[in-house]
């Protein structure tokens, strides 16, 4: 379970999050929607621990643990995963190599045995197959020369492999065609489980047709301004964010 209480964050003296409150229960899929500039991506970066963001107030608890005191890699080992909107390229490092290094680093941090190579390969291949990722893609340098769709599938592959307990999808649907959207959504749905929760950040309802949320939160000016069930997303799709933008001025 992730609890965010009264989170206030600024970057270079600019206030982005203004006392944000949000709780995501185990097994829950929470969608966050909101206009551009409302602070959605900032929220995902702050949860994952990116530098440059100054937390002025509030707390983030993962199963009662204070996340804000942890380094990004410690947060990852504790179960936080961020699927990036723009995944980074790592030249010269084969995707397979990266995956293994990441998985074993996390296992080690948790005091678990490292996976043997055959075990690891078995797991990667199984996950890759489901995401329709060809084997030669795993041999290529991570994200270098990948299409938008390939990058997003690689993000979900990493998620499947690392088995996090709290997953953030930051505009995972951006840049995906219909087929890629289906593959990625199926990959995410396959990972749904009672002890894994998701925070799905998106502009559009269409992703939520594939990954059906339990709760929908509307974010504006660095706050959650409205929460509801999945029908709230449909309402937003029909009416736009106009109602919520006005509250920005307030």
């Amino acid at each position: 379970m992730l609890e965010i209480k009264n989170l206030v964050v600024q970057i270079e003296d600019k206030r982005i999050l203004n006392g944000l409150n949000l709780t995501v229960n185990n097994g829950e899929i929470a969608a966050i929607m909101g206009p551009n500039g409302s602070g959605k991506s900032t929220l995902s970066y702050v949860i994952a621990g990116k530098e440059d963001y100054e937390v002025l107030d509030g707390e983030i608890l993962l199963d009662g643990q204070n996340v804000l005191e942890m380094e990004p890699d410690e947060r990852a080992a504790a179960g936080i995963f961020l699927a990036f909107q723009y995944p980074l390229e790592i030249p010269g490092v084969a995707s397979m190599t990266f995956l293994k290094a990441a998985l074993n680093a996390q296992r080690k941090a948790r005091g678990e045995e490292e996976l043997t190579t055959p075990d690891f390969i078995k797991r990667v291949n199984a996950a890759a197959q489901q995401l329709e990722i060809p084997k030669d893609m795993l041999k290529r340098a991570l994200n270098v020369g990948f299409s938008g769709g390939e990058k997003k599938r690689m993000e979900i592959l990493q998620m499947a492999l690392l088995q996090p307990t709290f997953c953030i999808l930051d505009e995972t649907d951006s840049g995906l065609d219909i087929d890629a959207l289906r593959i990625v959504s199926e990959g995410v749905n396959a990972l749904r489980s009672p002890d894994r929760s998701f925070l799905v950040i998106t502009h559009y309802q269409r992703l939520l047709n594939h990954i059906v949320p339990d709760t929908v939160h509307v974010m504006s000016s660095g706050r959650i301004v409205k929460s509801g069930g999945k029908e709230l997303a449909l309402e937003l799709e029909a009416n736009g964010y106009a109602d919520y933008r006005t509250s920005e001025a307030a």
Binding site: A48, E71, P72, D73, E89, I90, F98, Q106, Q158, L162
Partner: peptide, 11 residues
């Protein structure tokens, strides 16, 4: 790049 790697668990 560093943040991306760290987010995946690498120190």
């Amino acid at each position: 790049q560093m943040f991306y790697c760290q987010q995946r668990g690498l120190s």
